[in-house]
Design a protein around this nucleic acid. Sequence first.
DNA 1: CTTCTCGGTTGATAAATATCAATTTTAGTA
DNA 2: TACTAAAATTGATATTTATCAACCGAGAAG
Lengths: 243, 243
Amino acid sequence: MIMEPRRIEEACVKCKDRCCSRCFDDGEESIFNCLTTEELELLVKEKRHVHFNAGETILKQNTSASHVVCIKRGLAKIIAEGEGDKKLILRLVATHSILTGGGIFIEEIRHFTVQAVTEVECCFIDSEKIYELVSKNSQFAFELLKLNNKQNIQMLNNLVGITQKYMPGRVADLLLYLKNEIFLCNPFDTRLSRQELADMTGMTMESFIRILKELKTSGIISVDGSQIHILDEDALSLISRKG
Amino acid sequence: MIMEPRRIEEACVKCKDRCCSRCFDDGEESIFNCLTTEELELLVKEKRHVHFNAGETILKQNTSASHVVCIKRGLAKIIAEGEGDKKLILRLVATHSILTGGGIFIEEIRHFTVQAVTEVECCFIDSEKIYELVSKNSQFAFELLKLNNKQNIQMLNNLVGITQKYMPGRVADLLLYLKNEIFLCNPFDTRLSRQELADMTGMTMESFIRILKELKTSGIISVDGSQIHILDEDALSLISRKG
DNA sequence: CTTCTCGGTTGATAAATATCAATTTTAGTA
DNA sequence: TACTAAAATTGATATTTATCAACCGAGAAG
C-alpha cells in the first residue's frame, strides 16, 4: 500500500521534550503551543516516525484519512490528481508543516496526493488524536480553524490567479510564492523539474519554459538548472499584478 | 457603508424557539443543533435581522469581517473580485447557509463579496459570538471545522475543474452543480444572467452562450430565458468527466 | 406606435495556449 | 571516456478561447 509508511521506526520518545510543538506549524507560530504537556504526550504516544526518499508518495488521494502527517524535515508537493494523468500541484509544504489531507473532518477521504520532493522525515499521527484534542482544548480547535482558513484563502487566491491571469502573471506569482513563502531566500533551488513547476501554474511545460525564457531575456530573473534568481522583484510583482 | 445593514430591524425575539438552528445549515444537518438553549440565546441576543433587495451587496470584499451572516431566505452569489473589473463567482448560497466571509479566523478581512441574487432575508451575528461559542462548545468547533473543510474541498474541485477541463466540461459541471446542489429540482430557474453564469465558469459570456447552444442543439438541455432543463443528465455527466 | 436601451445572440477575427516533433543539453552509468 | 536515457529547449502548427462588432428582440419610456 502506497499510503502505508515504508519504514516504520519506533515512536520518537524524545518527543516529550515538545519537539512536536514545532511539527504542526504552518507559519510562524506553532499550532501546538497551546497544548498542555499531557495533551502533547497523548498526541505523541503512538505516533510513527517515517522516512521517505525523494519521489516517494507520502499520502495518496482517495485513500482514507486515518492519519495526519507532520513534516519534520524536507520538502513535499501537494498534488490534485484529475482525470487522465492531468495533475495540478496545489502548493509545496516544507519543514514544520502539518498535513490534514484535505478531508479529515468530513468524508474522511484524502482529496489530494502528497509526494516527497527531497528526502522527507515526518510523523504519522492518528486522526482520532486530533479529534480528541479538538474536544479537549478549544484553543487548539481555534488554531485548527485558523489553519484551515488560511489554506482556504490561499486556494482562493490561487483560483483567482489561475482563472484571471495570463501565463506571465501566473509564472510571476509562482516565482514570488517560491521565494517568499517556501524557500525564503533569493537565489533559491527549487529541486523541481520544469514539468512540476508548470503543474503549479496549470500550464504545459513548453509554455512555462517559454515564459521563463522571456523573463530571463528581459533580465528579470536568471536561471541555472533548477536554481532561480529573482533579479528585479518589482518588475516581477508588476507582471503578477497586471495579469 | 455598503457592508452595513440597510434596514436594521429589531432582534428577532422569537428566535429563542431555535429558528436559528436552521440558519447555520450548509447542508442537511444543522451546525447549530449542538448548542444548548443558553448558547443559542447568547448567539441570538444581539443579532440583526436585515432585508436586501436583489442586486444589493451584503458583504464587501476587503472590509473587516466583524460579522457572520446567515441566510434565512433567498439566493446570493459569492464573488471573488480580481484586478480590473474581472470577477469570478465562486458559488451560490441559498436559504439556511452560513457565511463567514472567507476570513473570520485569520486576518479578519473578508476575502470575497456577497451579493443578493433574489430578495434576501438574513441575520448579522457578531463574529465575537462565534469565537465565544468555539471555546465554550467543542462540538460546535468541530462543526465549524467540518464546514470549513467542506468549502475547502469544494474550492479544490472547482480549481481542478477550471484548470483541467475545456469549456464544455466546465459548463456541464456548472449545470450539474446548479441542479444538484442549489435548486434541487429539474427545470430550474437560475435567476442569473448569462454574464453571471459565465462568471461561474471563468469564461466569457460569448463563449458560455456558444457552449450552451451546443448542448441545446444536441438535445442534452433545453433553455428558456434563465430557466434551464437538463434532459439527459448522463450525457452531461459524461461531458463533465471527459473534460 | 415609435424609439431607445439592454441583455442575449451570432459571426468574423485575433490572441493565448497547447500539441507535436525535432534537437540540444544534462546526468547517469557502463 | 563514451554511451544512453531523461529532461530541457526550440520551432512549427493546431486548437481553444477571447475579443470585437454587428444584430436581434423584448420591454420601458416617450
